[in-house]
Design a protein around this nucleic acid. Structure first.
Length: 499
RNA sequence: GCCCCGGUCGUCUAGCCAGGUUAGGACGCCACCCUUUCAAGGUGGAGAUCAUGGGAUCGAAGCCCAUCCGGGGUACCA
């Protein structure tokens, strides 16, 4: 396990190099809030020309979810958030899985015990539950009562002799205050006496987050810790650990949280849990990324849609806000539409293809790429999500769309008029040149001859040609469908309306 | 309960640090224009006594204090 000798063999790095990390726990798939933290770290690193590291915090053996690591990494890759060190790419400070760094944590814990900054605790879970219940009854602040901190050597030996399981706890200073100059929240301070003796090493030999994060951030030479606000109350513990270990702590910045519509911490209940679900729901990575960056950061007083380079060039912590944000899916949807409209036809067709192959009836496949390329421009500005495409283009592919012929008779129109309209239009179309301008000009005059408003005349023809009441502009649609399909469908309409 | 953070239109936010015009933009909503439907686009509108109360100041969304509300933490979870 030579990879663990990071403390000895690590490469020297520039003293002022920015090194930030995203340290997800593989207990599930990352949601928007999680990934937003990754995005901010990534932007910070790229803005300062530093390194972005991914480290897997798999110290909770009970909550590990199989496949979560891949889900996390795939999500980052989908969003084009690349990392300089971490799983799949390696790096000089590995392993990037905490479960493979256990000896490192044990060494630190042992050192702290020797120094008197930590101690073994033999309290059973039952006793901890009792202590807690007692504290709640007396309405005093909650936390471990430090019983084992004051054990005599004889008592310790007794526990050890009987093989009692133990954990290692940190001995918090019982007086004084711990201050943090937070990069986003400025000065924050805590009374040490109110922070309890938290656990460093669990009885299964795995470290808690606190020990692992401090050890690794130091060893990996992390310069800035940018994490969600939910970690703010752990900061005094980490700061005290750095102090006891004799390490200079990195800068800290606690990012605003992202809440669900009910203002509560984002969880499985709030719709799309995993970032990958947004991909399945037809969102573009660029749109999602742009939307996320706006949750807690702003470029100026008006710019919202912006390219990645602009984000990188301008991302600074002084423009990150403090208040938590509520995730508004409607605005994401709008932004997705903006990005869809901005794509070139080829790229959009590419992006759409998997959704079409999945959403279209099997008999309509395979797709004819060149035909698809003529359809895409017609639906592009109508699309807000890629998932809407199959339904929007099905009638371009169907032999004969199914619909109730009664629809051919528009409001305020008689059946006779509808028949007339179809007949005349069919007659004309059979010998017409399929050109949008031409068709429109001729059909308008034809409508006038029939004494029908464009709304009614074209409405009838739209039903006949597409089997829908809404479609892209009629003549563009007809041109793409082609004379053969259009005339055949008008013929079908005529027959079915008659009978 | 205790500790910490936060509070500008329904939502995301600019402005706050270095007080000084009608508190700006975006989503959503409404209306109108364009118009062959749906979108897109354009124009306009409603929507914020800047959480509340007090204070210092000629002057406060900005500074100070208190209160209220919201969130987070308070695990052998991260």
């Amino acid at each position: 396990m030579s990879g663990l000798r990071a403390g000895v063999s690590r490469r020297r790095i520039l003293a002022d190099e920015v090194r930030v990390r995203y340290a997800p726990s593989p207990t599930g798939l990352p949601h928007i809030g999680n990934i937003r933290t990754a995005l901010f770290n990534w932007l910070f690193a790229r803005h300062h020309g530093g390194k972005f590291i991914v480290r897997i915090e798999d110290t909770d053996q009970e909550r590990l979810v199989p496949g979560a690591v891949d889900g996390i990494l795939d999500g980052l890759e989908w969003l084009d958030i690349d990392w300089d060190e971490g799983p799949r790419v390696g790096g000089d400070f590995g392993s990037y899985f905490q479960s493979e760094r256990l000896p490192l944590y044990h060494a630190e814990a042992e050192r702290l015990i020797q120094q008197g900054d930590a101690y073994r605790c033999y309290c059973t879970r039952e006793r901890l539950v009792e202590v807690r219940a007692e504290q709640e009854r007396n309405k005093v602040s909650l936390g471990y009562d430090r019983r084992c901190r004051h054990l005599t050597q004889a008592e310790r030996n007794a526990f050890e002799d009987e093989g009692a399981p133990s954990v290692v706890r940190f001995a918090m200073p019982e007086t004084g205050v711990t201050k943090l100059k937070d990069l986003i929240r400025d000065e924050v301070e805590w009374q040490n006496e109110l922070v309890d003796d938290f656990i460093l090493l669990k009885s299964d030999g795995f470290p808690t987050y606190h020990l692992a994060v401090v050890t690794d951030d130091h060893l990996m030479q992390v310069s800035h810790v940018l994490r969600a606000e939910e970690w703010l109350s752990s900061a005094p513990r980490h700061l005290q650990l750095y102090r006891a270990l004799g390490y200079t702590p990195p800068e800290h910045g606690h990012l605003p949280m992202i809440l669900g519509p009910d203002r509560a911490k984002l969880s499985k209940r709030h719709g799309a849990t995993s970032i990958l679900e947004y991909r399945e729901d037809g969102f573009l990575p660029d749109a999602l990324r742009n939307f996320m960056v706006l949750l807690g950061w702003s470029l100026d007083d008006k710019t919202e849609v912006m390219p990645l380079e602009t984000m990188v060039d301008n991302f600074t912590l002084d423009r990150v806000g403090k208040p938590a944000a509520i995730f508004d899916r409607e605005k994401l949807t709008w932004m997705n539409g903006v990005y869809i409209r901005d794509m070139d036809v080829e790229s959009l067709a590419d992006a759409l293809t998997p959704f079409l192959e999945q959403g279209l009836a099997p008999e309509l496949l395979p797709l004819d790429r060149s035909y698809l390329l003529t359809i895409v421009p017609l639906i592009q500005e109508r699309l807000k999500s890629l998932t809407e495409a199959p339904d929007m283009i099905a009638y371009f592919l169907e032999e004969q769309p199914e619909y109730d012929p009664a629809n051919l008779v528009q409001r305020g129109m008689t059946t006779e008029e509808a028949l007339q309209a179809l007949e005349k239009a069919l007659h004309y179309l059979k010998s017409a040149e399929f050109d949008t301008e031409r068709l429109e000009e001729d059909m308008r005059s034809l409508g006038e001859e029939l004494g029908l408003t464009p709304r009614r005349f074209f409405g009838t023809l739209r039903w006949a040609a597409t089997g829908r009441n809404v479609s892209p502009p009629l003549f563009d649609t007809m041109v793409v469908l082609g004379k053969e399909r259009v005339t055949a469908r008008l013929g079908w309409a005529l027959e079915n309306l008659t009978s």
